[in-house]
Each structure stands twice: as structure tokens, then as C-alpha cells.
Design a protein around this nucleic acid. Structure first.
Lengths: 147, 147
DNA sequence: GCTTTATTTGCAACATAATTGCATTAATAT
DNA sequence: ATATTAATGCAATTATGTTGCAAATAAAGC
């Protein structure tokens, strides 16, 4: 049980990014870290309840995204979902070019960190900066339940 | 100049899909067909102006999408953009699994019909139904202008 | 061409989501 | 402990999307 305390880790993360250690921010990090898939903005709003103003949540998420602490994935409905970035991310370069999987059944969004997006041939003249691949279908967990 | 008139083509397209030939519908088809990239809902709204109600536009786009006449692409901001489907599309199966290119400069969305999405290896258990790949960067036209 | 039928539109009302300005509060530095 | 700066919460506003319904319009039948 010598593992570092979550809150401690998050506090360091905030300081490192020049953000103050505030309650709403720690709360968001706690929630996001406790989930195995990306978390939708509406869900966050619901869980935080009256603990934080809706506006604050918007601003916290925006700040985190700018600093590269979290990354945003839009699902097929255009709803924003957020997940904590792996260590490779930074304010200047998000290494979030892994595939996201949007389950049609449970609507969770999984970051498939291990699946890299294959290189792409585009028409000449186009300069690709980022790739964003969302797969939809049935996730492993939902497929299991059917059996 | 023996080429078939646009309006005529569109009227046939509507009838074929069991939709009545109405002014707002023809207008939307005209606008979409006159552009080299997908068209955002807000832009359509602006161009149509008071010619059509906002609600009508929503319904026209929805009907077209259901029939497979157009397809929707969400850009990186989650805004809906629409493009006329290539002939392979139908109500039951959209053959829109080509790459979309979202220009960071002009914000246009191009359908790169010629670029196919490469097959993908996902973790076992996940069943992929559809793939959706959006590349962002600078489009050929914007890259040209810089020179 | 006129009438009937069914679809489509436009309006109004409503619901939801997102943004902005500003005063108050809270966190860090001195 | 105080000063300084950042962050929050509230109120107001704007944008975005949805629903029900009456009026208008398109296609079909006479």
C-alpha cells in the first residue's frame, strides 16, 4: 500500500501546469480517473451536481484541455467526452492519435491506446496535421453480456 | 449544352425517394451541389436566410439523410456538415466510409472519396461496425494561397 | 381544371446547451 | 497576515435543437 495517493498526484499535476489546486478541478480529475472510458460532459455535470456551477465545469474542462491534461473526443452525436491523457500528452502536443471506440449499445467511448491510426495517403496538396478515428460498434463488455 | 438541368435532376432525385418537390428541398440541393466541400448547418441557415424556416431546414436535412441523399459529417467542433452522397449511397447503407478532411484554415470539410479507411486491428471482443476518420490540417487550396 | 388527400411548411413555444461580464471568493506568494 | 492573482458562482444573454399544430402546398383522382 505504498502507492501514492490520488489526490496528491492530481495536486502535483495541477501545480505542474500552473493551475491552482481547487475543489472543482480535483473533483473532475477524481471522476475522470475512476472510469474506464471517456466521460461525457453531461455525465460530469450530473455527477458534480450542485457542487460546481455548470460554467465552472466548462472552464475547468477547457483549461485541462489546453494544458494537455485531458483530451476531448466527440461521439457520433457531437457530444463532448473527456479522458485523462496518457503521459505523452502536453500542452503543445496531444498524443491522442489513438483510435476511439464508441459503443452503439452502452454509448461508452473507449480510448484504444494500443491501436495506432495507420498512415494515410491523401491527395497531393493536402497537409495532414492530425488524424481522428472513431470506430463504432459493440464493445467487448456489451458483447459479453449478450452471451 | 445538352447536359441535363440541375433542377430536373434534383426533382427526379426527390421523387425517387418519395419526397415531394418543394422549394426548400430544391434550394438545399442547389446549395450543396454548388460547393466543393461539405456545408455546415449554420452556413446553410445563413444562405437560405428567410427563404426557409430554421425548423424546415432541420427537417429537410434529416429527411435527406434518412433517404441517403446526403451524409452528415461532424467537424472538430461538433458542428454538423452535410455533403451530397455519391451514387453508391442509399437509405439502407451509406457508403460514406471515406476520409474527411477538415481544414484548420478555411474550416472547409472535404470528402476525400478516393481515400479509403485502412482496415483496423482492435482488441479482441470489440466488434467494429463503422469507421469514421477525420483528418485535420491545411487543404490544398489554402496551402496554395500561402505561396 | 377542380377537388381531395397527404405531406410539408412556418410559427410559436419550449427545452437544452454554451458563452460572457462581473462581483465575490479562494489560493498562492510575499 | 496581507497582498496579489486566479478561479468560482451567479445572472443575463445567445445559440442550438425540438415539438405541436394550423395553414399552405404538392401530387393524385375525378
Amino acid at each position: 500500500m505504498a502507492m501514492e495517493n490520488n489526490t496528491e498526484r492530481f495536486e502535483k499535476l495541477l501545480v505542474k501546469n500552473g493551475l491552482k489546486r481547487t475543489t472543482p478541478r480535483l473533483q473532475v480529475l477524481e471522476i475522470l480517473s475512476g472510469r474506464d472510458s471517456a466521460t461525457s460532459q453531461p455525465y460530469l455535470e450530473q455527477v458534480m451536481g450542485k457542487d460546481a456551477d455548470r460554467v465552472t465545469l466548462y472552464r475547468v474542462l477547457q483549461a485541462f484541455e489546453e494544458k494537455g491534461i485531458i483530451h476531448k473526443v466527440l461521439d457520433q452525436q457531437g457530444t463532448a467526452n473527456y479522458a485523462i491523457c496518457s503521459d505523452g500528452c502536453s500542452a503543445h502536443e496531444h498524443h491522442d492519435e489513438h483510435v476511439h471506440f464508441n459503443c452503439d449499445n452502452c454509448h461508452k467511448i473507449y480510448c484504444l491506446d494500443t491501436v495506432k491510426i495507420p498512415a494515410l495517403k491523401v491527395p497531393s496538396g493536402f497537409k495532414v496535421e492530425h488524424l481522428n478515428l472513431i470506430a463504432t460498434g459493440i464493445c467487448a463488455s456489451c458483447a459479453d453480456k449478450v452471451n
